Every structure is written in structure tokens, then in C-alpha cells.
Computed example of a mutant assay.
Amino acid sequence: MFKKILAAVAVTAGLLLAAPTAANAVNYTDGAQCKFDVSVAEAGGTATLICIPGTWSPGEAINWTVSGQDGAGFKLASLRTADTSLTFTKHANADGSDVLTVTLPASASGTYSVVGLGQSSGHECPASLTVLPADQASTVLDPGSSDGLAHTGSVVASWAAWMGGSLVVLGLIALAIVGWVRKVKAS
């Protein structure tokens, strides 16, 4: 009987450990949002807008639009216009990713909106960037990251993993106690 219970516990543990792997096999990135590498930049500096693979259709043409105070002063891939906003078309990479480096004008200040619109998929990806005037030092940390590292890997909360491990250990202890009690009763 003990072997059957132990086998059931092992199979259950294996299934619980395999479930996140199976869930991660599906490509969930279609239509993902693009993010700047920083949330606050200084005027005259640069910021990079990163779209992960699968955000766009492979090789899709993307219409990028930048708007905000003195939006015409922005440079995207060395293109400059005289409008209050800047529009630029760029093709996504073969894996559906895109990286857009934005050069901020020296007179930039405030919040700027950057919107990408896929011509074939119709996916819209808005992002915003706050720009501090050149004479003001940036002391704001990126709120999207607490330790500066990307959040990758399992989506299981650490408390859930500890709770699951604790339940397995408690179950093994309970099985050991039941086995010991049966052995004492038998003798």
C-alpha cells in the first residue's frame, strides 16, 4: 500500500512540475506591448523602444508615430521632419520583433507618445516616455524593474512553490508516521 501511495505522490509531483512547461510551449507573445528601456530620459539623450519577438507579423511594415511637445525634433533612424509629430514606417524583423532607437531633441520636455501600428496585423502598440529638461538631473529609477534584471522563467509565485514543497514534505512525514504506527501495532 505504501508503494502505491508513494507512486501516486511521485506522479502527481511530476504532473505539477510539467504543467508550467506545457503552458510555456504556446507562443503568448502575439500582439505583445513594446516598452522603452527606460521610463525617464534626459533631453538630448536616446531611448530604445523594444518589441519582443512575435509582437508583429514577420517582416510586417509598422507605422511609427511620435507626438508630444516639439515632437518634430525627434529623430528616428536619422529622419527629421518639420511637423509637430513624426511619422516613420519600418519593417519588423523575421521573428516579429523590432527595436527603435529614439534620439531626443535638446529642447524636449514632458511626456511623449510613441505608437506603432502594424499595416497587415492591425496591432497597435502604444508606449510613452517621460523626458526631463536637459538642466534637470534624472533621479527617477525605472519602476518596471526592482533589481534591474528582466523577469523571465516561471510564472509560478515563489510562495506557491514553497507551499507545494512544504505540502509534499508534510505528506511524506504523515506517511512515515502511519507506517511506523502500523509497524508498532503489528508487533
Score class of each variant (00 low, 15 high):
K75H: 06
A7I: 13
A127K: 06
V11T: 15
D142R: 00
Q69K: 11
S97A: 07
A47Y: 02
C125H: 11
W162P: 01
W162E: 05
L172S: 05
T12V: 14
A22C: 07
L141V: 09
A94L: 10
F88H: 15
I177R: 11
D142N: 15
Q69R: 10
A43H: 04
N24Y: 01
D135I: 09
D98F: 04
H91A: 15
T84K: 11
H91W: 01
A94Q: 11
D95Q: 07
P133M: 05
S67Q: 14
A161P: 04
S128P: 02
A8G: 10
Q69M: 09
F88E: 14
V155L: 09
E42P: 08
K183Q: 12
T81F: 14
G110T: 11
G44K: 06
C51G: 07
E124I: 12
Y112L: 10
V9N: 05
V178K: 00
V155M: 08
A160M: 14
T48L: 13
L141T: 13
A8E: 10
A43V: 07
A41K: 03
E60D: 02
Y112F: 07
V155E: 08
T152D: 11
T21M: 12
L141D: 08
D30A: 15
A92V: 00
S146Q: 08
S121H: 03
G164K: 03
A174R: 05
V9Q: 06
P53V: 03
A77C: 01
S67H: 02
L175F: 13
Q33H: 11
I173T: 12
T103Y: 03
V181W: 10
S39W: 02
T111M: 10
L141R: 12
Q136L: 11
N24G: 02
A82I: 13
A176T: 13
L167T: 09
G31P: 07
V168P: 02
V155N: 15
A174D: 05
A176F: 09
S113H: 09
Y112G: 09
A13H: 01
G45F: 03
L170F: 07
S39I: 00
D30Y: 13
A7E: 04
L15Y: 08
A25G: 06
V131D: 07
A174E: 04
W159Y: 11
N63G: 04
I62A: 02
L129T: 11
A92E: 01
I173Y: 06
I50V: 14
A19G: 00
V99W: 01
G54R: 03
T29P: 01
G31N: 09
S78N: 14
D135Y: 00
T21N: 06
L86I: 08
A176H: 03
D135Q: 10
T55K: 07
N63D: 13
R80C: 08
R80W: 09
K35N: 14
A161H: 05
S39V: 04
L6A: 14
L16A: 11
P58K: 01
T111E: 15
A94R: 06
L86A: 10
A174G: 08
S145T: 15
T111F: 05
S97E: 02
S146V: 10
V38K: 13
Q136N: 04
S109L: 07
P58M: 03
K90W: 12
G118K: 02
S145G: 07
S154M: 04
S146P: 00
S187Y: 05
I62E: 06
G54A: 01
T46E: 08
V99D: 11
V115C: 08
Y112V: 12
Q119H: 04
